[in-house]
Simulated scan of single mutants.
Amino acid sequence: MKAFWCLFALGIFLQIPEGQAQCPPPFETFVLGGSGVEFCLYFDMEVKRDWHEGRTACQSLGSDLADLDYEDLHWQVISYIHKHQECPPGFKVYILRESGMEMCLNFASDVRRDWHEGRKYCKSLGAELACLDYEDLHLQVIDDLYRTQDMLDEGFHVGCTDEVTEGEWLWTDGTKVNLSSCHWYPGQPDSVENQNYCCLYQNNYLYSSCPNGMKLFTLCMI
């Protein structure tokens, strides 16, 4: 059984009718890890489109907008994108040891910014404040920081906050943060109301809740 999808550059996923024996060019095959169902995805990176333009373009292929809520399909798509993208200037490539997925990180150490200023800066680069909850990425970052003498006494803002609801930590994409993971420093995050932003703090570089308005360097990720 196959289902057919295509992906446009703005993150728009589209479906074309079932019934074909194999993925038609230029679609590629993705196999779900649990059921073995095969999906055909098309990554069109030539033209950036808005939502309606993307839908029109895929309808010209006999397809329509779709979602990725099928087992591990979304994760496979994320992995594919990271493996096939090139990090822009100023970003360093990190390769996850288990999956081989590539992540692009920028250590913005030119100016110390508060959390919101840092996020605005990341967005100006086409990036977002970093989330390091990917396999061994956090460990690789910590190792790099320990190897960089100029960074040893510095901290970095990363992309989660509980500014909306005290104690409810969310990533910038709205997903909940795992507060029991080993990424957090013991005892963190605390329940202090004026410490609403996550950072990698000096000496250990585990997640900590840092005071509002605190000026740190910024860690951006694509």
Rank of each mutant, 00 (worst) to 15 (best):
E154F: 00
E166W: 12
R97T: 10
D114A: 07
F27Y: 15
L65G: 01
V177K: 00
L132S: 00
F43R: 12
S181N: 04
H74A: 15
V141A: 02
F39V: 04
G11T: 05
P186S: 10
E98T: 10
Y121N: 03
R113A: 06
H82E: 10
P24C: 07
W75K: 10
E98S: 10
A66Q: 08
C104Y: 03
P24L: 09
W171N: 02
G100M: 06
G126I: 14
L65F: 13
T56E: 13
F43P: 09
I95K: 15
T161S: 15
Y201H: 10
A21C: 01
I95E: 13
M45P: 00
W5V: 10
E166D: 09
V93F: 02
G118N: 01
G34M: 11
V192W: 00
G19F: 05
Q59C: 04
G54R: 02
G126Q: 14
S181C: 08
E46T: 10
R55S: 15
W171H: 06
C220V: 02
D50K: 08
G90Q: 10
A3L: 14
G33Q: 09
D173Y: 06
N204A: 14
E86Q: 15
L145D: 02
Y205V: 00
T56P: 01
C198A: 14
D114L: 04
A3R: 05
H138L: 12
L14M: 12
V177F: 03
E166T: 13
S79L: 14
F43Y: 10
D114W: 03
H138G: 04
L68H: 02
E135R: 05
L145R: 04
L41I: 13
L145H: 03
Q76E: 01
Q20Y: 01
C58M: 09
H116M: 09
E128K: 12
P24T: 06
S208P: 09
M221W: 07
C23D: 01
Y207E: 01
C40A: 06
H84W: 10
A66G: 03
L105W: 02
C40V: 02
C6K: 00
E38V: 03
N212S: 07
S208Q: 11
D150S: 13
P89A: 15
D144M: 09
I12N: 12
A21W: 02
V93C: 06
R55E: 11
G167T: 04
Q22D: 14
L7S: 11
Q195I: 08
L7Y: 14
L179H: 00
C23I: 05
Q59R: 15
E18I: 10
L152D: 06
D144A: 12
C122K: 00
S99G: 05
H138T: 00
Q188D: 13
D72N: 04
L10K: 13
R49G: 03
D190M: 09
D162K: 01
C104P: 02
C210H: 09
R97V: 07
L65Q: 08
P186V: 04
D67K: 00
M101E: 15
D67M: 02
C23S: 04
P17R: 14
D133W: 11
D64N: 12
L137D: 03
W171A: 01
L152Y: 06
S60G: 14
N106L: 12
Y205D: 01
L139F: 09
H52M: 14
V47D: 08
T172P: 05
G155Y: 01
E166P: 08
R55D: 11
Y201E: 04
